[in-house]
Design a protein around this nucleic acid. Sequence first.
DNA 1: GACCAGGCACATC
DNA 2: GATGTGCATGGT
Length: 221
Amino acid sequence: MRSEILMDIYERLYARFGPQHWWPGETPLEIMIGAVLTQNTNWKNVEKAIANLKAASLLDIRKLEQICPDRLAKLIQPAGSFNVKARRLKNLIAWLSEKHGGPIESLKPLSTAQLREELLSIRGIGPETADSILLYALEKPVFVADAYTARILGRHRLLEEGAGYDDIQSLFETSLPKDTALFNEYHALLVRCGKEYCKPKPACAGCPLEDLPHDTQKECL
DNA sequence: GACCAGGCACATC
DNA sequence: GATGTGCATGGT
């Protein structure tokens, strides 16, 4: 039942918007960095910050290990919260380098559960950032249950009262096949639909989910 | 000028 | 354990 509804939503979104080609990053390292930079931040600003890092040839674990936080902060300035994010990036790089010796390839054989636990232990990496890294950088079948997901499901009365991040995530992970490509596309499509139609002040007209039961008064979680 | 954006840590109650 | 606040830029 729930699987059918979730697949119906997926089909509608895909039929409307088509493939989203996420994550827009060329390497796993760039995706990881983008996941931190996009915290509470518009993606366009993240692109500017990443362009600065590229221009400085800094998309490299060894170089990011060396750089001082102040210089890193200046480069990522367009992404906002730059002092905080510079520290968070340094924490992430230190984990890669000190615990796993650098190359991201060495992470891929490890279990999803172990990687998630380690990521969550890094200061600055919360559930959503950890799951974005697992799904988009490491290609693990993990569902990213972000604010758009909560908002869209909430508006369509598909969430229990008080459902939190883990509840929403397991709703998808237990109802759908654990398929990296599906989770990749589904989350990207929810973000796309949320941006265009399901904002805090919703504009439902024309939304591919418009004729499903929904409640436009409902606040986002 | 207010609100929002692909969150998280920390303080306080 | 729930709720509030700082971080900080850039687009609407």
